[in-house]
């Protein structure tokens, strides 16, 4: 186990939340790493300090009020919070961002394509229609050339008749 990963798991090690294999790996790393050992000691000290603090007295009726509020919340998909999000807000945010990337970006891009298709579509269709006229061997070639080149310009957003005169 490398130093960075071990350092990240120290808090969970202290709370014995790791698997037995991970506990053994962290223990082994601590034996050879004075920095991680020192950090673990700091964490222990902090925990001792927190546990030594006296718990404040709750106001009267707090438990009943809390139960009432919890009872009001409708049970369902959105009311359920997997325990993983509580202590890992960064992970929750990352997952949320990933979902946005996977779902929202294609949707936005699709919408942009649709809008762009709406704008270029008619000019593209006019150009294709101009080209289709060219299949007619008796149609005047200069006329075909003018209609087609005008359509080329329209497709890039230019006025075929030139700048405003």
């Amino acid at each position: 186990m490398n130093h960075r990963r071990a350092a990240r798991l120290l808090s969970a090690y202290l709370d014995t939340e790791l698997s037995s294999e991970e506990m053994a790996e962290v223990r082994s790393h601590l034996a050879g790493c004075p920095d991680c050992s020192a950090e673990l000691e700091e964490l222990r000290a902090t925990r001792r300090l927190l546990s030594s603090l006296e718990a404040p007295d709750l106001p009267r009726g707090f438990a009943a009020d809390l139960s009432l509020r919890m009872g009001r919340r409708a049970p369902g998909l959105w009311g359920w919070h997997p325990p993983i999000w509580g202590p890992r807000p960064a992970m929750a945010f990352a997952v949320l961002a990933l979902v946005l990337v996977l779902v929202a970006v294609p949707a936005i891009r699709g919408h942009q394509h649709r809008l762009r298709a709406a704008e270029i579509g008619p000019d593209l269709f006019l150009r294709i229609a101009a080209q289709a006229q060219a299949r007619d061997p008796l149609l005047d070639r200069a006329f075909v050339g003018l209609v087609f080149t005008d359509a080329n310009l329209r497709l890039i957003g230019e006025d075929p008749r030139g700048p405003v005169r």
Partner: peptide, 15 residues
């Protein structure tokens, strides 16, 4: 010649 263009509505909106 007339040319008819067909595209699923979800891919191209109204101009």
């Amino acid at each position: 010649s007339l040319v008819l263009f067909v595209v699923p509505a979800g891919r191209a909106g109204p101009p």
